[in-house]
Amino acid sequence: MELTVTDIQRFCMHDGPGVRTTVFLKGCGMRCQWCHNPETQKGKPELLFYAQKCILCGACAAVCPNRVHTVEDGNHMLLRDKCKNCGACASVCPTKALEISGTKYSSEELLSIVERDRPFFGNAGGVTLSGGEPFLQKDGAIELLRLCRLHGLNTAVETCGYFDPDVLNAAVPYTNLFLWDIKDTDSARHQKYTGVPNEPILNNLERANRLGARIRLRCILVNGVNTDDIHYRRVAELANRLSNCEGVELIPYHAYGGSKATFLGRPDNGKNEWIPTANQLGTAKQILFDQGVKVL
């Protein structure tokens, strides 16, 4: 089973318990305005261009069959419309200023990569599937989770919750922990900022809960978007309603993921005004705490 992967990061400390290897799968059904990993949105491989690494050697222009690259007068221009993401330019670019995001791996290959750090995992650590939305590549993701469990590796899935509900029957038994994003409990706002309503996500969450999934909720705090008390209370209600919820992680928005969009030739989507204040974070923590929710 093949999976399209944007990145594999080892020695991750914040993607679940203990030391973990995180596999980022490409493709997501949501389009959050603040997305930190925009290269994981589309399912197909895409060309990334890091302008600051370019030494204007022209190697890309020489090999590109579609004339995407022009290097002249100290400038490197890309005509992305013409790009077929063939990767010819990336393979000759000496500085890796050009790179194809989205590499195919078989689930067995991925297993052997995550196996490498087993000596560091101890009792708590293991593998985390992230993305993107891992369950958009549902067959591959489930196969990888199954293989990992079969080999005694702890598994976690970082999910936005927006996926085919049928996935859960197969996925829950192979997943030790779900890190479940709740972007917003207000459906209209959810639609506005992420492109989709939140009901399918909440339905999936209920379903996962019924199937016995162990869940940690992760809530991004975006100033001026979801930093209101009603939202925090609804998150608390949600956490309390789940039968096997470890608690809630509050993740303050930060702007430094924004520039990643520029590598795809899109405008920078980072906004400093989205960064929540320490007070807002404190209030959120307090409300959750008052409702008896463990803040992780």
């Binding site: 020695f11 400390m13 914040h14 030391v19 000596p119 560091f120 995992f121 101890g122």
Partner: peptide
Amino acid sequence: SAVEGEDGLSALMALMRGFVIL
């Protein structure tokens, strides 16, 4: 920043454990 908090402790312990196992 990599060694702060409980996560930081786990990280250091994991590195030492892996170093011995390997």
